[in-house]
Amino acid sequence: MSDALLELDNIGKFYGNIIALQGVTTEVNAGEVTCVLGDNGAGKSTFIKILAGVHKHDEGTFKLEGQGVNFDSPREALDVGIAAVYQDLAMVPLMSVWRNFFLGAEPTKGRWPIQWVEKRKAKEIAKEEMAKMGIDIRDTEQTVGTLSGGERQSVAIARAVYFGAKVLILDEPTSALGVKQSGVVLRYIVEAAKRGLGVIFITHNPAHAYPVGDRFLILNRGQSMGNFAKEEISQQELTSLMAGGAELEALQHELEQATTGNGS
């Protein structure tokens, strides 16, 4: 436990008298993927926002490499190596891949006021870093708007990795993608973990989470429904836990009845 990259113990967050999150415990190890599963309104967004420094947690402890932290701003989280890749990806669609890759941290040469961006170097690095993720962007001058959803995701991930992220938080990276594209993104997730990052993969799709995850945290209505290592749980159990087990069974029963009713 002590060598975990990120350690959360009984984290809670309240908005006034609304309990957004309570009793969440999990850990993220370097080179592992921790999946956070939950339906809409389960508290996933609040969870990410605490990790990424957008909100502060109100109870419990949040340790990064054994040190307790409580961030004041996303910048602070970023500085210690926690990078969040949000659903909207923080990209400018009309700008080229390399400009997006380095946006806000362009490598420059010369001194103010004659200071210019090292375009060639930037392009080469962008291409290289993308290649490391297993994606071949041949022309980094392409605008991001022309990339497919999966490729955009990979640019965002590669960018976070290049700029020294230790913990990578991915917010529903597969939710807007087709089957094949989702597979591609899942591969990037494994790739990022292999390179020694701790990955937090947030999703509502157990079929996406199970194959890549090493650890699963299940949230429902702001409460933790459990925190399992992969060997402790099967995909079936994961699915039913997430949907609130009994409810799903009841639904299944109802649907069956409806179809047989129609048939007769």
């Binding site: 996303p74 909207d88 990806l89 923080a90 669609p93 400009r99 946006l103 362009e106 200071q115 210019w116």
Partner: peptide, 24 residues
Amino acid sequence: ASTKFGSWVFAVGGNKQASRQVGV
């Protein structure tokens, strides 16, 4: 075309929210 500032001009015009998120 060649400076940081130039990149940021395109970025704030293209997607202000996103450019803020990455520190522009």
